[in-house]
Amino acid sequence: MTRVLLTGGSGFIAAHVLDILLQRGHSVVTTVRTQEKANKIREAHPKASEKDLSFAIVEDIAQEGAFDKAVVSDPPFEVVIHTASPFHFNVTDVQKDLLDPAIIGTTGVLKSIKKSAPSVKRVVVTSSFASIINPEKGSWPEHTYTEADWNPVTQEQAKQDAATGYRASKTFAERAAWDFVEQEKPNFTLATLCPPLVLGPIVHYLNSLDALNTSNQRIRDTIQGKFKDDYPPGGPYIWVDVRDLADQHVKAAEEQGAGNQRFFVTEGYFNGKLIVDAVRKNFPEYKDNLPKEDLQGGGFPEGGVYKPDNSRSKKVLGAKYRSLEESIVDTVKSLKAVGA
């Protein structure tokens, strides 16, 4: 059993990470913004004792010293999994709404660990394919993306729009984490995970159809008939199931060899047409909400799309990946459970 601090416990990815940590017998403290969210998580895990699952309220991860109290525990933490970071495009101020929470939140938790939790030996940070991709290259079919790639976005470009701001927030936050480890030489080793689009079943006690994670909105909108005359968006054309991603977060915490490694976590390709086809095949009750079968489009860019290399995740973390169809079927079932 390992004592783990999980940040952002009510998030889409973190909720699945929490399930796996508890299943594997780890003892978890998770940070949440409000007591109300803590209560919902607690109610959903009735078998977990206070020793197995407890909470720390961190209202604003962008505040200096936000995690100072959260990292102190008895018994002390050995692992921190940091998933808390904004992913949405409802942005009025890119700096305040995206860059600060991502960068200050990440460096803040690392500073707090170094200062007050010397027992921590491994920190796992949720990064993103957004920190790997070079958007200026477009679909770049001749290129294979690996962990060696970094998004070249600049501070100036980050302020252009919400989408660029989001990609920049993930890039700058991950770079700041690696810089911290290099410069501060803390007691812990770092592992970062870089997933592209994350699909998969929602944790129903934290979600309504209106408050859905950004990635799954395209599946919700498909079954609700919002794409009758078109296909759902296909970018970034690569994806991963949230359960596989969560499993790899936990493996990155457990595996000795994962320390000081960056992981590109992806199953492979998807597009808008493949989403629709999976819904059509498995959920005939939605057929009138879907684009007509002979509708053109929804595929990959003409000329192809970049190739992802997920071999490090398989070799070091033993990653196994669910199929797109299985992921979409399970996602739709979970959306139906909350009223889709």
Rank of each mutant, 00 (worst) to 15 (best):
M1A: 14
T2P: 05
V4M: 05
L6E: 05
G11F: 05
G11V: 11
G11R: 00
F12M: 03
H16I: 08
L18N: 00
G25T: 09
G25M: 08
V28H: 04
Q35E: 13
A38I: 13
E43L: 13
H45N: 08
K47L: 15
E50M: 06
F55H: 07
A56M: 03
V58G: 04
A62W: 03
V72L: 07
P75Y: 06
H82E: 01
F87W: 06
H88G: 05
H88Y: 05
D97Y: 00
D100I: 12
G105I: 04
T106C: 09
K111I: 07
S112T: 12
K114N: 15
K114A: 09
S116Y: 14
A130S: 10
I132P: 04
P141G: 12
H143C: 14
A148S: 13
Q155S: 08
A158I: 01
A158V: 03
Q160Y: 06
D161N: 09
G165E: 03
A168F: 05
S169M: 09
F172V: 01
E174I: 00
V181T: 00
K185Y: 11
L190E: 01
A191V: 04
T192C: 02
L193T: 02
C194H: 00
C194I: 00
L199C: 09
R218W: 04
R220E: 09
I223L: 12
Q224M: 04
K228G: 08
G234P: 14
G235L: 13
Y237Q: 07
W239P: 11
R243W: 00
D244V: 04
L245Y: 06
A246N: 07
D247G: 10
Q248F: 15
H249G: 01
K251P: 00
A252T: 01
A253V: 01
E254Y: 01
Q256E: 14
N260T: 12
Q261C: 13
T266G: 07
K273C: 12
K273Y: 15
I275A: 15
V279R: 06
V279C: 10
N282P: 03
N282I: 01
N282V: 06
Q296C: 14
G298I: 15
F300I: 14
P301V: 14
P301Q: 13
P301S: 14
A319N: 06
E326Y: 14
E326F: 11
E326C: 12
I328N: 07
I328D: 08
I328F: 05
K333F: 02
L335I: 14
K336D: 15
